[in-house]
Design a protein around this nucleic acid. Structure first.
Length: 903
RNA sequence: GGGAGCAUAGCUCAGCUGGUUUAGAGCAUCUGCCUUACAAGCAGAGGGUCCGCGGUUCGAACCCGUGUGCUCCCACCA
């Protein structure tokens, strides 16, 4: 079969993925093997694949594929998250484009549209994962709003409510005026902003002057209920207890004192607006002040609650004005009253919604909460398991982040004013009494106990739904029906899961809460290792964003470079927990690597028909005695190469195992890359390569096939497609690499490896000398070796001849005049050539080297003459220094001889 | 405001228990090569105040202190 010049990935990738699927390699069933379970962090059902997913899922696939090849029953569960806020926003947007407003629809009508939308677009991201080569068990695809899953979430809510962990209360919450819903603290992102500090005066009602406050939020002035100063602040001591007038609305409010106020900030006087600020709200409650709300759910002005104060036409004219427009308007109107003293630039922070980006309002509302202190208190393992590494975090530094958050945890607001999600199983009667129950009928039964005359039509369910994360935290359990069908066979086999791979940005949202759920509902850790990825940034270190247009089109990249190259590119520079700077040149490197593998395949395939089996018996005879003739040494040359590579391969496999166990994936890939490119292609294949149209020893060829296969096996988890392709092109293998079981790693001999390293060193040194002396690659040289171990060089003569383009090799006891001298360790090499040598340059080089060596010798000698060093350092360290000294001395001698030789 | 982390070649990063380090790799750069697997390649080279300062030690990129610069997390002082 003719192999193409370069490797062309697209068709190969498509057909192997189909083949793997058709063979059912990714689907897992419980059996006698140990399970290796990974649940995908479910992407938003609205999502499309981006670089973050690419990194995250490539890592999971590497772990899963490797486990599958190492005797584990690997199960990787796919699925999507209903992502209530994001999805509801998308559906609302889609409806708006069609001229439909959400408010014109009933809940059922809206949900019908949402499900239609989900069914149409919800699977896209999963299809894209197939392109990346992800070996997910598609039969297990789950969704956080599947029927059983939905029931499990409701069940957990009811359970926690019964235990008194979940409660309903009127609290200050983070309100997203765009999403029109409450948010948990974790969903609020604080951003630095340039704002202004307005100094506004409130006239005293007794006409004795005014008090000036500094505020960043003048639009809330109409909701002010007091002015507060620090009780120790002498400036205001005589004003406490008096009254001031709120500008515009002319409401009388008291001047009060509280230690909360910082006298050093602004004017030392603070306006209290309990309806719009968490701290003000607390102060308000402490001092029995009313909370006057002036903003509606959308963040627009409403005078509704100001009714008792007989709002003027001016106040009423603000109705429906957006908070930011209102801010300017109120400042203008107060300025017109000459009550704005000054305006300062101010750098402050505002909370924004993680999902919609809207500036958060603090808003008093009735919501459902989870009492986290109580909850965690009941399950100490939630905190301990991470501290004691029962659940291992990679990188470990995130353990601190986790424990700090746990120690300072606050109640979790779990209700959302949305329709897309699990509807809260709380029911109300006409008097506003509330019971929690799974169904209307159950709720009705409960109400009847309180009031026998209650009719079922009089009760209605809570309109709100639950925070998405209140369903996601059950993911590792419920994908195996662990909640909805407890102790089923699959759950018992696959749970706890093995490794979780996710972004460190969701450590609190998701990871921490899965750990809570794991211990609270099943008394087990949900996973044993968590690999946290950083954020994918562009090569200048900027976050990927739509505005910057710097997020690459992943599918386009896969089309251009292939999935293997894309996986290579994202993995080669991504240590656990660090952000990765995405650079397309890494994908090029991956593509080039594909090509290198392809060409190695082509080379080896050329030999297939050129094996010479007649050399085999002779070869076996030669193994154990010293070779004397050139003919024989060719055979032992191969023995040397084969033996060296086998040892090197085992060494590298050992390294890779170690790195993988530590989750150092990027380094494992680098090790494999260098093993293949440098050791296998650049050295080994060159060493065994027969001359033009010459035969290759059959046993060497067979060994080479085995090595290449093993290299593909090692690389497969990282680059599954090309390795599978080569595995089949190399030999007529009837099995597939995808499920091939890795052979045990053999041992390796340090001496054999060192011999190989020495040979490489000699070859490089001689090539360097050729280069420096401008000997053209085609010009042959004659090589003479002065060494104490002639036999060792005899064994590798043929490699040496070929690798440095020498026409002959001789052994000598003495220096050879008019030659270039190269020293490697204790051996000297003399290069003789027809070319006229540039003695001036050569001398200069040697002198430079000599100086360097002498300095080094000086340093080592000084160290060795330090008695305290010799006394205190470990003996092997001292021996090493002695060896360095001897080597330096020998080298200096060689250089001096060479200089002499040139003269 | 509190906490964590980072700083090593032009760039991205290794360097694990202080001594096999005269500090490595990949990319980029430079030189020479179209050598029958591969120019998306081959062969080779150059490139470092290990952030500054101080300390501990026979010995420091590594440990300690301090300064500087960056990054992240937590925390709603209007």
């Amino acid at each position: 079969m003719e192999l193409s010049k370069n490797y062309i990935p697209n068709e190969v990738e498509r057909s192997w993925y189909e083949h793997w699927l058709s063979k059912g390699y990714f689907s897992s069933k419980p059996d006698a093997r140990e399970a290796y379970t990974v649940v995908i962090p479910p992407p938003n059902v609205t999502g499309v694949l981006h670089m973050g997913h690419c990194l995250n899922n490539t890592i999971q696939d590497i772990l899963v594929r490797r486990a599958r090849m190492h005797g584990k029953n690997a199960c990787w569960v796919p699925g999507t998250d209903h992502a209530s806020i994001a999805t509801e926003a998308k559906v609302v947007g889609m409806l708006r484009e069609r001229g439909i407003t959400k408010s014109s629809l009933s809940r059922d009508e809206f949900l019908k549209y949402a499900w239609e939308w989900k069914d149409k677009y919800g699977g896209i991201i999963l299809q894209q994962l197939k392109k990346l080569g992800c070996s997910l068990d598609w039969d297990r695809t789950s969704f956080t709003m599947d029927d059983d899953y939905y029931k499990a979430v409701i069940d957990i809510f009811i359970r926690l409510h019964k235990e008194g962990i979940i409660y309903r209360g009127l609290r200050m919450v983070n309100w997203d005026p765009v999403g029109k819903t409450a948010l948990s603290d974790e969903e609020v992102i604080f951003k630095d902003i340039d704002s202004k500090l307005y100094y506004v005066s409130y006239p005293l009602t007794d006409g004795s002057g005014s008090i000036t406050v500094a505020t960043t939020r003048p639009e809330t002035i109409l909701g002010d209920v007091a002015i507060c100063v620090n009780p120790t602040d002498q400036r205001y001591a005589n004003l406490v207890g008096k009254e001031v007038m709120v500008p515009i609305i002319n409401r009388k409010i008291p001047v009060i004192a509280d230690e909360y106020v910082d006298a050093a900030f602004g004017t030392g006087a603070l306006k209290i607006t309990p309806a719009h600020d968490k701290n003000d709200n607390e102060l308000g409650r402490k001092h029995n002040l009313k909370a006057l709300n002036t903003l509606d759910a959308e963040g627009k002005f409403t005078a509704e609650e100001l009714g008792d104060d007989h709002p003027s036409a001016q106040v009423l004219s603000y109705n429906g004005i957006d908070r930011f427009v209102l801010r300017k308007k109120i400042v203008e109107d107060i300025s017109a009253l000459n009550l704005v003293q000054k305006v300062e630039e101010y750098k402050g922070q505002v909370g924004t919604s993680e999902r919609t980006g809207a500036v958060i309002e603090s808003r008093l509302s009735l919501q459902w909460f989870m009492d986290m202190k109580k909850f965690i208190g009941q399950h100490p393992a939630i905190v301990e398991s991470v501290a004691t590494d029962k659940i291992k975090f990679h990188p470990a530094k995130l353990k601190n982040t986790y424990s700090y958050w746990m120690d300072n945890i606050k109640d979790w607001c779990i209700s959302r004013q949305l329709w897309w999600g699990q509807q809260i199983p709380a029911w109300y009667d006409t008097e506003g009494n509330c019971v929690v129950a799974a169904t209307k009928e159950e709720a009705f039964e409960k109400f009847k106990i309180q009031n026998a005359t209650r009719k079922i039509e009089e009760i209605h369910q809570d309109e709100d739904c639950l925070d998405t994360w209140f369903s996601s935290w059950l993911w590792p359990m419920e994908v195996f029906k662990g909640i909805s069908n407890p102790n089923n066979e699959e759950y018992n086999y696959y749970y706890p899961t093995t490794t979780l791979v996710t972004g460190q940005d969701i450590i609190f949202f998701w990871v921490a809460r899965m750990i809570m759920a794991g211990y609270a509902f099943k008394d087990k850790q949900p996973f044993s290792d968590v690999y946290f990825t950083g954020m994918v940034r562009d090569k200048q270190g900027r976050k990927m964003s739509k505005q910057l247009g710097n997020s690459p089109d992943l599918l386009g990249l896969i089309d251009t470079y292939g999935a293997d190259a894309t996986r290579f590119g994202i993995m080669i520079a991504s240590p656990a927990g660090n952000d990765i700077l995405f650079d397309e040149s890494a994908l090029e490197q991956g593509r080039n690597f594909n090509n290198k593998l392809w060409n190695a395949l082509k080379l080896i395939k050329m030999w297939e028909a050129r094996q010479s089996s007649d050399l085999n018996p002779e070869s076996e005879n030669q193994t154990h005695h010293s070779p004397l003739t050139t003919h024989h040494s060719r055979l032992t040359t191969h023995d040397f190469a084969v033996n060296w590579f086998e040892n090197r391969l085992n060494e590298a496999k050992t390294e890779v195992n170690g790195l993988m166990n530590q989750f150092r994936l990027s380094e494992a890939l680098k090790t494999i890359y260098s093993l293949i490119w440098d050791d296998f292609c650049s050295w080994y294949l060159e060493w065994i390569k027969p001359g033009f149209e010459q035969p290759i020893d059959s046993s060497v060829y067979q060994k080479t096939l085995v090595y290449f296969e093993e290299l593909m096996e090692l690389l497969h988890p990282f680059m599954p497609f090309i390795t599978e392709e080569i595995y089949h092109l190399l030999k007529d293998n009837s099995d597939d690499l995808c499920i091939k079981q890795a052979a045990a790693v053999g041992s390796f001999d340090r001496d054999v490896l060192n011999a190989g390293e020495l040979l490489k060193q000699v070859i490089s040194a001689l090539r360097d000398a050729r280069n420096k002396n401008q000997i053209k690659p085609k010009d042959p040289i004659r090589l003479a070796i002065q060494t104490g171990s002639v036999a060792a060089y005899k064994a590798i003569e043929n490699i040496l001849l070929k690798q440095v383009n020498a026409e002959s090799i001789a052994y000598t006891d003495a220096t050879i005049a008019n030659s270039i001298v190269v020293a490697v360790e204790k051996d000297k090499f003399f290069i003789e050539t027809e070319k006229q040598l540039d003695t001036t340059t050569l001398k200069a080089e040697l002198l430079k080297d000599l100086e360097h060596q002498q300095k080094f010798l000086e340093a080592v000698t000084k160290k060795l003459s330090n008695e305290r060093f010799v006394q205190n350092a470990r003996p092997e360290v001292v021996d090493l220094e002695k060896k360095k000294q001897a080597d330096a001395e020998a080298r200096i001698k060689t250089i001096q001889e060479s200089l002499h030789n040139l003269a």
